[in-house]
Design a protein around this nucleic acid. Structure first.
Lengths: 220, 220
DNA sequence: CCTACCGATCGGTAGG
DNA sequence: CCTACCGATCGGTAGG
């Protein structure tokens, strides 16, 4: 069962600032797989394509990874682990102030969708994961959903937010953020930071936030 | 170049009530293709799979449709045409009352995402369309986006809605609705109508609608 | 509207 | 007996 040293995830570097995004430091094979999956989808990509683009032999892929599925698993889990880690930092930084917790987490998620569009956009390929792999990924995503839900519920409890149903609302918000990967391009008119700010404002309305925080400006 | 009588779209029946959804009356080949595309994706589906499930020979597929791409094109354009047609009816029914126009259109879009989850969920396969086909589909979708945007802008103009940027907000709303196809199941706890109602409420907050008399605590 | 096929390529693995 | 690979090819299947 256990063979060699397959690269699974753990490509993510240590994070100290949840707002800063260094270029993804992926194994060349994963970088190639990501590129092809984004362009042709999981099933539209051949392992030979990946090998060719990575400049390695096809057997090399199977030496480093269990199989084609292993490539998708590594990319998906890497991305989800990273955004989850960032979201927890963003949350913690607010030191319990609900409005700021909410704003930080939404900002962080949208920054992830823009700075990490390629990996974040792989979310739609999740259905091609084998059941065991999907379960692991779903568990990670559920943690993110529950973090946001908990914040929304706390906001309601404190009378700062007004929503009819917190679970529906937080799920809707997450879907709204995820959809950014469908249209964002790094050469578009808006920076990731601008988009994140706008989505924070939109999200605050969605939860019926009573107090509007002073607009944040991004200096240089 | 031109051969036979290819089924393109036009499977949609005439609509008189935008809230009622009859079962999709798809050509058996398209129904089979839809089933396989949903389960394995476009590239994960073989034309032989489709033939087998439809109970026809593989060449029969190519007799009725131009190629594999033609199956996806027909399904995608059919679905988008239908929701667009419904949205226009939903809009017209409000006879210019902005709050109702907005509520109707959002309700209608969410009803589409739930009653038509299979076809609506094919949206993520749009990137596999050849450029010419994608352009046609994108044009249809843009009409829906612009309908919603126009309503949001009118609401702002009339002082009924409060948003920072109408284009961002309406795009975010559409993404929020589209995401419903990712989790909705007909055997879940909520009916399409219940989900639509909840999304209307959420969306009204998102546009800052003065849906009920604002609590007059102090001046604003 | 079927049988019979094609050029090429699929994901994955052999021996060395 | 391990690692990092190679050229060649496996049994089957792809869209047409």
């Amino acid at each position: 069962m256990n063979q060699g040293e397959h690269v699974t995830a753990k490509t993510t570097a240590r994070l100290d600032d949840w707002r800063s995004f260094a270029p993804l430091d992926l194994h060349p094979i994963l970088a190639a797989a990501l590129d092809r999956f984004r362009e042709h989808g999981y099933h539209g990509t051949t392992v030979r394509d990946v090998a060719g683009r990575a400049g390695v032999s096809l057997p090399m892929i199977y030496y480093r990874f269990e199989n084609k599925q292993g490539l998708l698993v590594a990319l998906l889990e890497d991305a989800m682990s990273e955004v989850l880690q960032r979201a927890r930092l963003a949350d913690a930084e607010a030191e319990g102030r609900v409005l700021e917790r909410f704003s930080n987490v939404v900002e962080c998620i949208v920054l992830h969708m823009t700075h990490r569009t390629a990996t974040a956009g792989l979310d739609s390929e999740l259905r091609y994961l084998e059941p065991a792999n999907r379960k692991k990924y779903a568990a990670l995503r559920k943690e993110l959903e529950e973090l946001l839900l908990e914040i929304v519920e706390e906001g309601v409890a404190q009378g700062l937010f007004e929503v009819d149903r917190a679970p529906d609302t937080s799920r809707a918000l997450l879907g709204m953020c995820q959809a950014v990967t469908g249209w964002y391009h790094s050469d578009g008119p808006l920076t990731p930071e601008e988009i994140a700010d706008r989505y924070v404002a939109i999200s605050l309305r969605t939860v019926g936030a009573r107090v509007r925080p002073a607009p944040r400006t991004h200096g240089h």
